[in-house]
Design a protein around this nucleic acid. Sequence first.
RNA 1: GGAGAGGUGGCUGAGUGGCCUAAAGCGCCGGUUUGCUAAACCGGUGAGGGUGUAACAGCCCUCCACGGGUUCGAAUCCCGUCCUCUCCGCCA
Length: 424
Amino acid sequence: MLDASFVRENLEAVKQNCRNRHVQADVDRVVQLDDERKRLAQQTQTLQQRQNEIARQTKSEKDPAKRQQLIEEGKRLKEEVASLEKQLKQVQSEQRAVLLTIPNMTHPAAPVSDENKVIKTVGEPTRFEFQPKDHVALAEALDLVDFEAGAKVAGQKFYFLKNEAVLLELALVQYAFGILLREGYTPIITPDLARAEVLEGIGFIPRGPETQIYSIENTDLCLIATAEITLGGMHRDKIFDELELPLKYVGLSHCFRTEAGAPGRDTRGLYRVHQFTKVEMFAFCTPDQSESIHQEMLSHEETIFQGLGLPYRVVDTCTGDLGGPAYRKFDLEAWMPGRGDHGEYGEVTSTSNCTDYQARRLNVRYKIAGKKGTHFVHTLNGTAVAVSRCLLAILENYQQADGSIVVPEALRPWVGKERIAAQK
RNA sequence: GGAGAGGUGGCUGAGUGGCCUAAAGCGCCGGUUUGCUAAACCGGUGAGGGUGUAACAGCCCUCCACGGGUUCGAAUCCCGUCCUCUCCGCCA
């Protein structure tokens, strides 16, 4: 969320940004409510000041009549203050509610449009001397994924990984961790559940008809949609020393998504599923570090996909598609030969610089040694490997004429073979 | 899951209704002394908000896990929630 006084001072820019991002938000209301909040706060404080005086005087007042008078006034004040505080809370929560609908500001270089900008293409779409299959057909032929069993046990869009698919998942996790450990990231395995308030802090809306989030009945717990939630929540309410930053984590978790409101689109196979495993990067840093860490995360993503030998392109996400918390976002789209009629690029990673938007909600700050006051940190996240989609891309790009699948060289140490042989 | 004990500033920790404007120590910052460093000594050191200022300063309010309550007055008493520790149970 944005700071109310920032909104006040940059009213037009904030409104324009909302338009660019196709967000309907009552920006003026924030300022109105802020005025109201100040007015109520001042009134409250004046009365509280008097309350404190009375408490002090009552203690030393020996005359019973005067003492009684003070007590009466104290009682009256208590009621007035209670009523004002109630109004104040009301205004504050309303203001927060409006602020939550306003998206983060946007990086000046991000494309202002409804079309993402391709800024780089690496490798060529894979060519085949034969008619390539999609990953669903491949997985079935090689007995790698059991969608039917998934549906039987948990429902549509759940699946069982089998045989080499299991080894590939484990290999991808090891491979990604290996690369990021060398880059100095701290490895973490996070909870797969988190409190609703942590989800809200990161920018998710855990309850409601359109929610992407599964909730656990009779608790305030949700299944996480990404480790970004738990990694970001890890330092809630923390004040860092400037010298401790940046903190860079590589986290492993399962991700759960209801995919409500997205039926029919890309539903085949592993592309859009309710549960998958993901290795995620997350960083807490100072404002002057975030831009370069964002570039760094993007380059780690590229390293990972280049190492796997998968063709991909890099996309600078447009304002119309940025979502709430991101100041700027880059996606990697890998070539997926089985997608569409003749293959298409499909999103496999996403890295966002959220500046102080999440930190303000989560109350994560830092202070500079010897200086007064605190500042909000910047947070960034980036996908290292989203296993289901990455697996999809590997199966489709590495398929051979004889129906077998070559294992990318980088993963062989963990898979233990060069090729997944065609069966029967 | 059961029983008990707790949650106080960056950290340790005292504080059981008004003298808390939260002791003391550690750490940190500045100074004095000093070949250098260290030690010693002196001083200063939380956050959020409001008001105010050219900018400081100043003044005021709030914050002792969180949310309610009792009281003229709450870190302190009561209720709820969350969390931590110890013991027991259960279990990979």
